[in-house]
């Protein structure tokens, strides 16, 4: 038996909105410690990794490790039927080919039940190496979203450069070019507005903006985002989910010809 109740059902809605343009099917890997999802886009350029600890759910019950394959289209349709303040319970019995969703309003007056057929999804699990990044930049998530959106008006690629002076985003195309510099903030009122730059080594990488703009669909999940960069390595974009999980996107760089 698997059962997990998320008090803030809106978090599940936001997670699905964040990944539905990148992947079509996902496997929920459920174990006693929580739920994880690893999915790659069809072009093998980016990967989504969701990790949700069991402590984010009340109750959480997972008698035996179970993999639940879901089509995101069906999941998206069902989850959209929940109100933002509903709790969402996911239930699956061993040996059945259905997954159940129960939505409950905060006062308990309205409950809704939906069922989705499980799918057998053949997905390759990649081993993501532990990486010591050259630079780790934490910034407001809406700021990152804005930068990606603005830069994609100029070109298809963005160059991200971290130096002791800060982080620079630049793009160029037929129309012209643009550069945006961010420096570590000194004094801010709210911690979530802070720009924090950890620099071990200067790093300079190019990425396709199309994917970054997909990733920023996760902005409603968290006020902050972390960019982890290493020379000639995939970028890791992390959105924390409450204090019990995270959504990470890995993006392979563009390599000079």
């Amino acid at each position: 038996m698997f059962e997990a109740r998320l008090i803030q059902g809106s978090v599940l809605k936001k997670m699905i909105d964040a990944i539905k343009d990148i992947v079509t099917d996902i496997n929920l890997d459920c174990s006693s410690t929580g739920i994880s999802v690893q999915a790659m886009d069809s072009g093998h350029v980016c990967l989504v990794l969701i990790e949700l600890g069991s402590d984010g759910f009340e109750p959480y019950r997972c008698d035996r490790n179970i993999t639940l394959g879901l089509g995101l289209k069906a999941l998206s349709v069902v989850v959209r039927c929940a109100n933002n303040d509903d709790s969402i319970t996911i239930k699956a019995q061993e040996g059945t080919d259905n997954i159940n969703f129960v939505f409950e309003s905060p006062n308990g007056e309205k409950t809704s039940q939906f069922e989705i057929k499980l799918m057998d999804i053949d997905s390759e699990h990649l081993g993501i190496p532990d990486t010591e990044y050259d630079s780790v930049v934490k910034m407001p998530s809406h700021e990152f979203q804005r930068i990606c959106r603005d830069m994609s008006q100029l070109g298809d690629s963005i160059v991200v450069a971290c130096t002791k002076d800060g982080i620079q985003f630049s793009a160029s195309g037929d129309m012209g070019s643009g550069k945006i510099n961010l420096r570590q903030s000194s004094l801010v009122d709210k911690e979530e507005d802070q720009i924090n730059i950890e620099l071990n080594d200067p790093v300079h990488l190019t990425f396709a903006l199309r994917y970054l703009n997909y990733f920023t669909k996760a902005t409603p999940l968290s006020p902050t985002v972390t960019l982890s960069l290493k020379a000639e390595s995939p970028l890791c974009v992390t959105y924390p989910i409450g204090d019990f999980g995270s959504m990470k996107f890995f993006l392979a760089p563009k390599i000079d010809d």
């Binding site: 980016c46 990649l126 690629s157 390595s233 995939p234 392979a252 563009k254 390599i255």
Partner: peptide, 13 residues
């Protein structure tokens, strides 16, 4: 500009 790399060349199975 630049060639898009595949993630498979960085992450092992």
């Amino acid at each position: 500009k630049g060639t898009q790399a595949s993630l498979m060349s960085f992450f092992g199975k």
